[in-house]
Computed example of a mutant assay.
Amino acid sequence: MSNIFLLGLTSLFADFSSEIIMPLMPFFIKSLGGAGLAIGLISGIGDAVAAILKVLSGRFADKTHKFKKLVFGGYAFSALAKFFFPLASTWPQVLAARSVERIGKGLRDAPRDAIVSESVDHHQRGSGFGLQRAMDSLGAILGSVTVLILFWKFDYDFRAIFFLAALISLLALIPILFVRVPATLTNFKPKRTLNLSKLNFSAPLKKFIGVSTLFYLGNFSFMFLILKAQQSFGHLDFKDSVALTLLLYILFNVFDTVFSQPAGKLSDCIGRKKVILIGYALLTTTFAGFFLAQSFLALLFIFPLYGLFKAFIDASQKSFVSDLSETENRSTALGAFETSTGLALIPGGIIAGLLWNANPNFTFLYGLAVTILALILLQTMIKEVRSKN
C-alpha cells in the first residue's frame, strides 16, 4: 500500500495545483473573449491530447518497464507547462497552454494506474484505486478552498493565482522518487516492438471501452456546470457570484473525496458493473437537475450528486479495466481505455459548446440523452467479471 499512498500524495499535490486553476478557467476564458464553443474546445482538445498519448505511454511502459520514469516525466511536464497559463492574453493561447499541459497527463496516467493496480491484491483493487482517488480529491478540496480565499478575500487576480498554482505543482514530483515498481509488472521480458495492432484485448474489455466511449460523449467538461451555477447568481456582482460558485465547487469536491474509497470498496464487494451503473445514474440525475434547477437550494443538492458521480465512476472504471486485462498488457489496456474515452471529449465538448451558445439548457438535455443511452447499453451488453489477475 505504500506505493498507493505515495502516488496518492503526488496526485494530491498535482490536483491541489490544478484545482486552483480550473474553477477560474471558464471565467478567465470569458474575460479573454471566449464563449461556450471556446470552453468546449479548450476542455475537449486538451483532454484529447492526453488521451492520444495514454495508450502509447501505456504500451511503452509495458514493453520497456519504464513505469516510474514515465510517471515522473509526466508530472514534471505538466508542472512546468502550468507556468504558461499566467502568460496567456487570448483564449487560443489558453487552448495551446492547456494542450501542452495535458501532454504530461497523457504520459503519466496509464503507467501510474498500472502500478496502483499491482500494488494491492486483486480483491482489494477497488479500494486501492479508491484511496489514490480520495487523496487526489483531497488535493482538489485544498485547491478550491485556496482559490476561494485568494480570489474573494485577498483580491488576487487570475494571473497571480495561476502562477502560485504552478509553483505548488512542483511538489508533486517528490513522492514519486520513493515509489517502487511492483515485480509483477516487470517479470515479463521487454519487447522492442510497440505494435498496437497485435493487441488481443478480451471481448468484454472491448465492449466496455465502447460503451464508456459513448458515455464520455455526454460527460462534457465541468466548466459548463460552473458557468451554469454562476449564471443563477446574476443578481450578485461578479466577485460574489464567483465566490458562491466556488463554494458549490468545494461541496462537490468534499463528496468526491469522502466517497471515493468507500465506492471503490463497494465495487470489491458487489462488483464493478453495479457501482459503475450507479455512477452513470448519478450523472443522468445531475444533468436533469441542472436542466430544472432554478434556485441556490437546488444547486446545493446537485453539486454533491456530481461529486458522488465522480467518486463512483473513476476508481471502479479503472478497476474494471484492470480486471478485464492481462497483467502483461495492463498499462496498455488502461491507456487504451483512457484514449478512447478521452477522444470522445472532443466532439462531446464541441457539441456542448455549440448548444450552450444557442441555449445553456440544450447542453444539459444533450448530456442527459447520451448518458441514459450509455446506461442502458452498460446494463444490457456488459457482464460482471471477477478478476483472477
Rank of each mutant, 00 (worst) to 15 (best):
D237E: 14
L177D: 00
R102N: 09
L308T: 09
S127E: 13
G348I: 11
I346T: 12
G218C: 01
A298S: 10
K191H: 14
I21D: 01
M1I: 03
S241N: 03
L199D: 06
Y216G: 01
G143H: 10
I20S: 01
H235M: 04
L375I: 01
L199N: 06
V321W: 05
E328P: 01
F320E: 05
Q379Y: 15
L345G: 00
L199V: 11
F158K: 01
V258Y: 08
G271I: 01
L87V: 08
G33V: 09
G106D: 07
K228T: 01
L248S: 04
V55L: 09
G46V: 11
F287N: 09
A96Y: 14
A344F: 13
A166H: 07
Q93S: 04
E338K: 14
L196G: 05
G128Y: 11
L343G: 02
A165N: 05
I29H: 05
A315V: 06
P190R: 03
T257F: 15
N200S: 08
H123A: 13
S2K: 12
L6D: 02
A14P: 00
E338S: 15
V71S: 05
E101D: 15
L334Q: 14
I52G: 15
S340G: 00
D240N: 14
F252K: 10
G128D: 08
W91N: 05
S340F: 14
I350K: 03
S43V: 06
F67G: 12
A81P: 01
I39V: 15
F151A: 00
T213Q: 08
G143V: 12
F252A: 03
F85I: 05
G73D: 04
P92R: 05
G307F: 14
S117C: 06
F154G: 02
M25V: 02
I21Q: 04
G218Q: 01
F5T: 05
V94D: 00
R102T: 11
F77E: 03
F296C: 00
V275P: 01
F309Q: 08
P190E: 08
L80T: 07
A203E: 13
A97K: 07
F208S: 02
V179L: 07
L283N: 12
L248R: 03
F84S: 07
F83K: 02
G104C: 11
I209S: 08
P92D: 03
F77A: 08
K66G: 04
A333G: 12
K273R: 14
A79Q: 11
S212Y: 00
K388F: 14
F362A: 13
N359H: 15
A203G: 00
I278D: 00
Q124D: 13
A374M: 03
G367A: 10
F85A: 00
L343P: 06
K388M: 09
K310E: 15
A165Y: 06
G106S: 06
G342N: 09
K191P: 02
V145C: 07
S331K: 10
I45D: 08
A61E: 10
